[in-house]
Every structure is written in C-alpha cells, then in structure tokens.
C-alpha cells in the first residue's frame, strides 16, 4: 500500500467492509483534522460502529485505506497497537471492569507502560494517584472511588468510561453514543465535558441524540448505507433533503 501524505489526523479513503455479502461500509471516505471535534450521525445500520471497528483494528476492511497521523496504516495494526498509537474508544454499551473499583478502572487506563513485565513490578506512585484524583474530579466520581464499577448506575458508567478515555491520554477519542440512557442534565454535562476535552484532543462522537449534537455545535457527518451522505454544520446537514428522507424524517 503506498503511503500517503496527509495533514489529517485520521484519514479514511474508500473503505469497504462486507459481512456475508452485506456491505456495512461502502467506499467510505472521511478526514478528521487534528484538534477537530466531529459528530457522526446516521440511521441504524449506517455503518457507524463498523467504522469505529475499522479505525480501532477490530475489523479489517476489504478495501481502502485508514491512515492515522499521516503515517500509520491502521489496516495493518491490531487493537493493541492502535490503542498504543493514541486512539481511545468508548463503546456504545458502557464497558467498564465491573469487578474492579472505580479507582482501579482508571489505574488500568492510565497512560503507562502496558507491558506484562512492567505490570508485574508496578508500584503505587504519586504521579498516578494525582492523575486519578484529577480525573475523578472531572468525571464527578470521587465519592465512588472505591466502589465496584459494576455497582455504578448507567450514567456513572458512561462517565467512568469517558474518564478511562481521558486517563489513556489519547490523541484521538472515538466516543460511541456517550449520552444514551442519560438524563437531560447529564447529557448537558457530558456535552460540556466533551467540549472541554476537545480543547486538547481530537474527538469523534457518534450520536443519535440530535439535541446533544446541536449542543456540541461542531461539523457533522451523516452516514447512510456505509458511505457519507452529507457533511457540514448541523443546520446544513439537517436541511439536506436526503438526510431528512433517510434519517430525520419529515
């Protein structure tokens, strides 16, 4: 595969993925600039999650390129290598380590040497606990510090997972439906939090909640049947006839 020079942090070009004849992604092209926040919308089955899977190495595309930071070919790397490059992912269904305390969840996510050898001889240190403290503040889970993550409410789990993303200190955050199951207040707070994070990091948000997307106030890409249907501001996209037809409804 010839290497491409691109200024984009994330560059997808002509990505196609099919499962047993069904094209989950169909010649998808997308470029995310460094420091940008992008919202991805689209109906069920539009390929949003599959796109995340391709970027994070869970699914290999049949065709097409996925390039990170101008030089890393994501289609040849596995999940671990991609995570280590600095791409963090929050899943649609919150997945935290239920049997670990909130604190340990963050500890595991903390940007440190991930090798087995390092983990064996790891010692508690002040830097780590300060980092954890500050993240706990950000995600408002300080009182739940030593509780089992499995005992958190749905919204708290979403926040913990975002906290884990922060702890990873990635360059690019992929956030899949962060406000599903949240109250309005929590949704509001999450939008604030993401905007805060975006000050230092690039963020891609997949979301159904149009209010939330509007709240974010960023460039929007609408996917449909595995490729880009429309791109632009929320107002542009939501007035696009095709988008209205396939997604928003009249």
């Amino acid at each position: 595969m010839e290497s491409r020079t691109t200024t984009s942090l994330l560059y997808l070009d002509g990505v196609t993925v099919s499962f047993d004849g069904f094209r989950a992604l169909n010649n998808l092209s997308l470029a995310i600039e460094d420091g940008e926040m992008r919202a991805i919308i689209g109906p069920n089955g539009a390929g949003k999650t599959t796109m995340m899977d391709v970027i994070t190495g869970k699914t290999r595309p049949d065709l097409g390129d996925a390039v990170f930071a101008g030089s890393y070919d994501l289609t040849t790397l596995d999940e671990t290598e991609i995570a280590r490059l600095g791409i963090g992912r929050k899943f649609q269904k919150p997945t935290v380590f239920d049997m670990h305390s909130v604190e340990d969840n963050l500890l595991l996510a903390l940007a440190e040497d991930r090798s087995a050898r390092a983990a064996l001889v790891w010692q508690e240190n002040e830097h780590a606990s300060r980092r954890i403290d500050s993240i706990l503040d950000t995600i408002r889970l300080k009182p739940a510090r030593s509780r089992l993550a499995g005992s958190l409410s749905h919204g708290q789990k979403q926040w913990l997972e975002i906290g884990m993303l922060l702890a990873q200190e990635p360059k690019l955050l992929l956030v899949d439906e962060p406000v599903a199951g949240m109250t309005d207040v929590e949704t509001q707070q999450t939008a604030e939090l993401l905007k805060e994070i975006n000050k230092t990091k690039t963020v891609v948000v997949v979301e159904h909640d149009m209010h939330f997307v509007r709240e974010l106030g960023v460039k929007v890409t609408c996917l449909h049947e595995g490729s880009v249907l429309a791109e632009g501001t929320i107002d542009q996209v939501s007035q696009n006839d095709r988008v209205v037809e396939v997604y928003l409804g009249r």
Partner: peptide, 20 residues
Amino acid sequence: KFGKVLVAIRDAESRTRFLG
C-alpha cells in the same frame, strides 16, 4: 497491577485490548 489486568481480561477481554 498485573493481577488487575488479568481480572480485566477475565471480565472484558476486548476492552482490555482497546486500552492498549
């Protein structure tokens, strides 16, 4: 910490991978 990673793998293997 190795042990914590083991438990993490036990409970959510692919999540642990995505953490790097």
